[in-house]
Amino acid sequence: MSTITHWLHKTGGRGRRLAAYAAGELSGAERVRTESALAGCPGCRREVEAYRLVARALQATPRVSLTAAEAQAFWSGVEQRIATRARPRPLTARPALREVFWDHPRLSLASAAAAAVLVLGLTVSQMSGWLYWGTSLPNGVEVLSVEPGGDAPVMLFQAPGSSLKVIWVFEERPTE
C-alpha cells in the first residue's frame, strides 16, 4: 500500500471524501490528493464508482408531473385553502336563556321559587312599608339569610323539601 493510499485510509472522513469526490464536490489540492490516492486503492475506486452510479440513478429519476386535470384544478384547490384560512372563525353562539333553563330543570325550579319570593316580598313591602324577614314565609319558602349589602341586597332561600339553595340579588336599575 502506497503512502498516499495510507493517507486516504488513515485520515478521518475517508467515506465523506470519496462521496464528495464522486459528486465532484472536492476542489483544488484535496481533489488532486484524492485522485492520487485512488490510483493505489482499487477498493476506494469501486466505492467512488458506486457513489457515481447512485448519483446517476438519482439524477435519472423521472420527474412527476401533474395530470392536465390536476393542473387545471390546482389553483382552485389553493384558493379554497386560502379562503378557508382567511375566513373569520365563526363565533360560538351563546345558548339562549330559555335553552339554559330548558336544559337545566333545577334552574327553572329555582327561578320560579325566586320569582315567587320576590312577588311576595314586594307585596308585603307595599302593605306594611317594611320587609318582614322571618325564618319562614307563608308559602313555605324558607329564607336562610339576607345580606343588606350596599347597592344590591342578597337573599339566600330554599324551597321546602329541596336541597337546592337559591341566591337572589336585588339590584336597582341605574337611573338615567
Binding site: R63, V64, E70, G77, R81
Partner: peptide, 27 residues
Amino acid sequence: QDRAFNLAYQMVRNREDALDVAQEAFA
C-alpha cells in the same frame, strides 16, 4: 406548481399526498 408537486412527490412518494402538500404549501 409542477416543480412543487414533483418535489413533494419525491419526498412522500404518493400522488394524493403530494398534491395535498403542494397545494398546502402555496396556501
